[in-house]
Simulated assay, not measured.
Amino acid sequence: MSRNTEPPVDVDEAIARIDSRGAKIQREQLERTLSQLQTDGELTADQRLVVEELSERLVERLLAVPRASLRDAARSSDDERIETALSLFE
């Protein structure tokens, strides 16, 4: 029987890494989209705010399931599942 000698995975760190990656992608895509919209004409402050809020909501909804899965994995001490989730967001 082999024993895992690596320390347990910190689920809070895993969630922070996933959130950081999501925020980075959100910012990149928001800048790209706002730039494209600005090329087509002036955006009002309200329109810009709507696009920003949409991008934030999309990322939040997309990451909700991986966060919940990571918390569930932590409750069941499933380090392998946490490591797999992390590898998807590197």
Rank of each mutant, 00 (worst) to 15 (best):
D72Y: 11
E6R: 13
A85Y: 03
R48P: 01
V50T: 15
E56N: 13
A85Q: 11
K24H: 14
S69G: 14
E80G: 09
L70R: 03
D46K: 10
I18T: 00
S55Y: 08
V59G: 05
K24Q: 15
S87N: 11
V59A: 07
Q47N: 10
R57P: 06
E80Q: 12
S76G: 11
R48F: 00
F89V: 07
D72N: 13
P7Q: 11
E52C: 04
T44F: 05
D10F: 09
S77C: 00
R48G: 03
T5N: 11
R61S: 08
E13D: 14
A23H: 12
S77V: 03
E90F: 08
E83G: 14
R75F: 05
L34Y: 07
A45G: 10
L43S: 04
Q29G: 13
L63I: 02
V51M: 03
S87W: 06
E6K: 12
E56Q: 14
S69R: 08
L37V: 13
Q47D: 10
D12H: 09
D72M: 13
S87F: 08
E83P: 01
E53M: 14
R75W: 04
T5Y: 12
I15N: 00
A14Y: 00
L34M: 12
N4T: 07
I18S: 01
F89G: 01
D78F: 03
A23C: 09
E31P: 05
